[in-house]
């Protein structure tokens, strides 16, 4: 339990998807123009993460890992194809649910909802999870040793991503009123803002829970 909480907090602040690993940058930069849409996308990403990471964890431990399916067979090299198939399927499902229950959110997310399938944050979380299975939970607070850990990691990463995109959207809303040099406007200044936010988040890096 203690390990789960520490993993959860760690993946929000220290191993933040955006500021430490730059995962999911494309939609992060494109959808962060206003806070409302940003919250919607953040929640969608968190939800997709919350489903895909545990499913991929089960796949990794019971199907792909060494000696998991057949003794002496290591199917890890198939991980990329299987993970992306799981993600694409689940995103399709989420798309249908959002369209049914919140048409306004569906309209404002537009093309970015199906594109969650190719959002690096989702695939990246699964790949990091695959790496961290091998770590020892006694010595490393990043280790993912069970199903609960996988869920805690997914939730933490999702909330970290949500936090980052809402923060940037809020800054960009204010930035519309500032006088930025012309070539720097738009994308350039956004990058530099994200860089400064990442610097601020670096103060968490020594955190030990």
């Amino acid at each position: 339990m203690e390990h789960m909480i520490s993993l959860f907090v760690r993946s929000i602040f220290v191993d933040n998807m955006i500021f430490a690993f730059f995962l999911g940058m494309c939609s992060y930069l494109a959808v962060s123009k206003n806070v409302k849409t940003a919250i919607g996308l953040g929640i969608a990403v968190t939800f997709v993460l919350l489903v895909t990471v545990p499913v991929d964890y089960a796949l990794q431990t019971y199907v792909l890992g060494p000696d998991a399916l057949v003794k002496g067979v290591d199917l890890t090299f198939l991980a990329f194809i299987l993970f992306i198939a799981v993600i694409a399927g689940i995103v399709q499902l989420v798309e249908m649910v959002v369209e049914r229950f919140s048409p306004s959110l569906y309209a404002s997310l537009g093309i970015f909802l199906p594109l969650i399938a190719v959002n690096c944050a989702i695939m990246g979380a699964s790949l990091f999870m695959q790496q961290r299975i091998q770590l020892d939970p006694e010595t490393s607070s990043q280790a993912i040793a069970g199903f609960g850990d996988a869920i805690a990691y997914a939730l933490g990463s999702g909330i970290g991503w949500l936090l980052a995109i809402v923060g940037l959207a809020a800054i960009r809303e204010k930035m519309a009123y500032t006088d930025v040099p012309k070539p720097l406007q738009g994308l350039g200044i956004t990058f530099i803002t994200v860089g400064l936010m990442a610097l601020a988040f670096m103060c968490f890096s020594g955190l030990n829970i």
Partner: peptide, 10 residues
């Protein structure tokens, strides 16, 4: 540090 790559790309 990771943060600097953002600023350089910017």
């Amino acid at each position: 540090m990771p943060a600097m790559s953002l600023i350089i790309v910017g």
